[in-house]
Design a protein around this nucleic acid. Structure first.
Lengths: 129, 129
DNA sequence: CATAGTATACTATGTGTCTGTTACACATGA
DNA sequence: TCATGTGTAACAGACACATAGTATACTATG
């Protein structure tokens, strides 16, 4: 489970972690019974504070994606895959909606917006592993 | 010149105002020599503080889009249209990039992303005046 | 039993955004 | 001249985010 934390984003880091765990579970990178990486490990790797990671994990527990196993770590729940597939669509939809909201307000035509989207899809797919 | 301030957005209000003025000028809603609505008027209409509007206007002056006319208001500069058309594309591109960045990370296929985009384009165009 | 690893809790600090308020200098029009 | 409009400035307070440090409780392992 790898993360891609963007410090320059308007989106809070803990929220980025939350979405990315959800995306990972939805995509099957982690399944029920598996443990998430420890808060300190994640914090160290991404040069952020472990409290920030802990906040993300708490939110994930609140959403029923993981359950805290005292002294062991965060375990992916049995319901997680279903929950995450639903949440994934909602999250992506909201992000796109917010971006396009301004794009359309900007008086760019739908065609110009599609062109920008295609450019970004190519760019993103190029970087994909 | 109307604004559409979203208090729930991750994007700061003053930054939303900045982009929307840029979009307005780029689209020709306001041209060189015209005055922007006063900080108090905008603040009153959108139920925000006028200091927030003032911060946005200062940023616009820094970017060369407007110039402060003491005691009169903010006047759109002669170079503004060119500046704003350039900035508009950068802004929209960045917003879409940030949204799609997560969308692709989420393991949705390009096809699924296009579908979400089209849904939002329809929704946005429906609301357009 | 001791040790290491885990999440959790709490306090404190700094930064950025937004608000509310007051005051000032300048321009305009009655 | 005077009232009203403009942007600008300064301040204090609230809130969210992120950081930092410390302490606690639990579990697994040897």
């Amino acid at each position: 489970m790898l993360f891609d934390i963007n410090a320059d984003s308007h989106i809070p880091k803990y929220e980025q972690i939350v979405s990315q765990v959800i995306f990972g579970v939805a995509a099957g990178s982690a399944g029920p019974g598996e443990m998430l990486p420890g808060v300190r490990e994640v914090a160290l790797r991404h040069v952020i504070n472990f409290n920030t990671v802990a906040k993300a994990y708490q939110e994930l527990e609140r959403q029923g994606v993981v359950i805290a196993r005292q002294g062991r770590g965060m375990e992916v729940t049995a319901e997680a895959p279903a929950v995450c597939r639903t949440r994934r669509k909602e999250i992506v939809q909201n992000r796109i909606r917010e971006a396009l909201r301004e794009a359309v307000y900007s008086a760019l035509t739908a065609e110009e917006v599609r062109k920008l989207v295609e450019e970004e899809l190519v760019r993103a797919n190029g970087k994909r592993r």
